[in-house]
Design a protein around this nucleic acid. Sequence first.
DNA 1: ACCGGATTGTACTTGCGGGTACATTTTGCC
DNA 2: GGCAAAATGTACCCGCAAGTACAATCCGGT
Lengths: 198, 198
Amino acid sequence: MVTTAKGIATRQRIVEAAAAEIRERGTLATTLDDVCRRSGTGKSQMFHYFPEGREQLLLAVTEFEARHVFDDQQPYLDDLVSRAAWEQWRDVIVDTCRRQGPHCPLGVLIADVGRYSPAAQAVTTQLIRRWQDAVRTGIEATQAAGEADPALDADRTAAAVITAIQGGVSVLLSTGSVDHLEAVLSLCLDHLLGPVGQ
Amino acid sequence: MVTTAKGIATRQRIVEAAAAEIRERGTLATTLDDVCRRSGTGKSQMFHYFPEGREQLLLAVTEFEARHVFDDQQPYLDDLVSRAAWEQWRDVIVDTCRRQGPHCPLGVLIADVGRYSPAAQAVTTQLIRRWQDAVRTGIEATQAAGEADPALDADRTAAAVITAIQGGVSVLLSTGSVDHLEAVLSLCLDHLLGPVGQ
DNA sequence: ACCGGATTGTACTTGCGGGTACATTTTGCC
DNA sequence: GGCAAAATGTACCCGCAAGTACAATCCGGT
């Protein structure tokens, strides 16, 4: 179905346009026509590259944004070992969310996509899992470095951290304030690393 | 506009039907026709009692569910002072979510309603504020009882706890698993009360 | 050059769901 | 009982956005 370089490029343009549109206005308000207009394509391409329609496009966007977020965070995630590194990571997350306002790409999508579409649920579950693994690795490294309480269950703590982020984004989407995100992430970090003045 | 007892009752039936429908299938999938069918009313009543339409109904449902959740939790919130009480509260939340599966009433609504409707945003903001105040009071009581670190900023910690719950619900909605909620709430409690075996 | 599949443009269908119009009945009240 | 307002029933409208049909064009390989 897709073989040509041109075709791949078009498909990519559609995904990017959809992602941008969703960031700006939410999944609900984003229509296929909007995406077509923005990407300079037409319905025919839309359904040529996403024969299953809207749902399939949303999944593609989710994967796209996930890759994006991971690429952004990878350098920080790889280096989670000192308190300073953890705090820097937290600040990056908070700042990114603050800058983007209520348009945090993954947040929007995890919150929106596929409540009830099993395919989408699978994608988000796997995404959370992957992210959680990255954080867990960081926690283990921090423990190995003697900076974190070795008694903590690394995976469970990672789960808590991911969930905290998701909650912060959720509150951000509802209220427009990033304070809650900051508060809960800081609490998690304090718990992980011990009180600030230790 | 509304004076009769019968009218009030009808309005109430509409709100309850809408709430039930939303719990079962999400706000997105809930149509006014569904609500009418379920409540045994017609469009004319719908727009008689909610002249501004769907949006207004959703707000009413949010307030209804908020009251509901508060009433449920009030006894526990009033008693947050010992570790046992906190853990019981946590278990109530987790169990409720587990039982209801991905239908946690407030979670759905906070996550869904009024991203972008300013009125809805005001309602959810105030709701979060109110809930946070209740938790803060609990934290202060716990500190006063010497069970919690007095150095913690009670309001900020309360914000973190509320956000954690919201995140857990959000993950629950996306993945169907309640584990993340449990993990993040437990982490918050451990942080607040000190490690289990202290 | 030319063939066939990939790609794209245009115009359409269709269903759904929010919202409206208006007629009819019920109800509280004097 | 009768009347005005509230409450309800029925039938509609209308717009939007997902999805389809089909024709036209491009483009790589031989």
